[in-house]
Design a protein around this nucleic acid. Structure first.
Length: 355
RNA sequence: UGGGGCAUGGUGCAAUGGCAGCACACCGGACUUUGAAUCCGUGGAUCUAGGUUCGAAUCCUGGUGCCCCAG
């Protein structure tokens, strides 16, 4: 604790219970904590969490700065999201937001202001290897682990990152909040994409990217037309809800075929694939796994990890051969690599394959 | 305008004289810092007019609509 005494630490304070407790723990550890609230996306008439963040900062007796980054967020994260949709992908804007906003621009600002580190309420754990380089681990609370959302960050960002909640379960965090009577102790879990909050996908796209809502045919694997879709951007691989077709069993989205604007659907048994092709890997370890080493991969934030062997191609792309087939492997989502609790790195999914 | 068959929630089916049930879809909830998946749950139907019967989705008659065969 002594070595942290007086060191300046920035904490990204959202007003929720997690970042609030993170700020509290940092302060307890002896840091000179300064909170930052980011205004990223606000809907007219919608109550923001700024007041909640201010109440927490006041309660903890720490200064709070408010950065209005709405334009930056829109130009970067939302734009990136829409661009990915236009490329027929299923983007993960939270991953990207962490890269460019929270652990990009905000971290830069923190360091420029001579903060020693930037903390957040993410559930994940950092350690350091013999060379002093950061290693990203899953959270102690496996059910809340958010290492997936941090796995696309460069190690240089991790080096200045602090995750005070690493060792705590969600229940413990709530209990700490209750114990010290934090104003945010009863905050809801954040859920939807922040810029979709309170709206549905259709309404959002109609307002911001109506060109993505081009109706087209829904076809089965035999090319038989079954109905009409309202825009490929509204669907993701493996999706069941929203297709609107009745049959003896549920239909799932098998493919989004952009050249013909066709939504290809079929039964669930047509979904599994046994390999994933990704783009270049963002490695978070110094010693890379060999082609014969079994690692674990996750293809969605809430997906169960499965064992795989990874081969790096000469292009830098990766093929992960899965020990067990997975369904819903979706271009644009992040694939994360693990060895036990340790996150080895991540890469963007390009395609699902059957090898 | 000959013969035959069919008609049940939004869709596809079940119930053959006894409280109309299932799947899919839709809607709601749980889960979830990605639109998923998964789990739980609600609502909603006997084409129409008569008749037989204690009782009709079921049997009878007419009407209407659809399908098949033959023209």
């Amino acid at each position: 604790m002594n070595k942290s005494a007086g060191k300046k630490a920035w904490v990204a304070l959202s007003g929720g219970v997690d970042s609030s407790v993170a700020a509290f723990l940092l302060k307890e550890a002896g840091y000179a904590v300064e909170a930052v609230y980011l205004r990223l996306w606000e809907l007219p008439g919608q109550q923001t969490s700024l007041q909640a963040a201010q109440a927490v900062a006041d309660y903890l007796g720490i200064p709070l700065s408010v950065f209005d980054w709405r334009q930056i967020f829109k130009n970067q994260v939302v734009e990136h999201y829409l661009t990915a949709l236009a490329r027929n992908r299923t983007p993960n804007p939270c991953v990207y937001c962490n890269q460019v906003i929270k652990w990009g621009r905000l971290l830069e600002q923190a360091l420029e202001n001579r903060a020693a580190l930037l903390a957040s309420g993410h559930y994940a754990r950092l350690e350091y290897d013999a060379a002093g380089l950061p290693l990203l681990y899953k959270a102690a609370d496996a059910s809340k682990d958010q290492s997936y959302f941090l796995a696309a960050l460069p190690r240089t960002s991790l080096a200045a990152m602090c995750l005070p909640l690493a060792a705590y379960t969600k229940a413990e965090v709530r209990s700490i909040a209750a114990e010290i009577n934090l104003p945010s102790r009863q905050s809801q879990e954040s859920e939807d994409l922040c810029f979709l909050a309170g709206k549905d996908q259709v309404a959002f796209l109609r307002e911001h990217a109506p060109h993505l809502l081009e109706p087209g045919p829904i076809e089965d694997l035999h090319g038989k037309e079954l109905g009409q879709h309202q825009g490929l951007a509204l669907y993701t691989i493996g999706q069941r809800k929203g297709i609107g077709l009745s049959a003896s069993q549920p239909y799932y989205v098998l493919a989004k075929e952009q050249t013909t604007n066709t939504l290809r659907v079929g039964w669930s048994d047509a979904l599994p694939r046994n390999a994933v092709q990704t783009g270049p890997v963002n490695w978070l370890v110094s010693q890379l796994p060999g082609a014969q080493d079994l690692v674990e991969v996750k293809i969605r934030s809430a997906a169960r990890p499965v064992q795989a062997r990874c081969k790096i191609l000469s292009t830098g792309d990766m093929i992960a051969k899965l020990e067990k087939p997975l369904r819903d492997i979706t271009a644009g989502q992040l694939l994360t690599l693990y060895q036990g609790q340790l996150c080895l790195g991540s890469a963007e999914i390009q395609a699902a394959l059957n090898l």
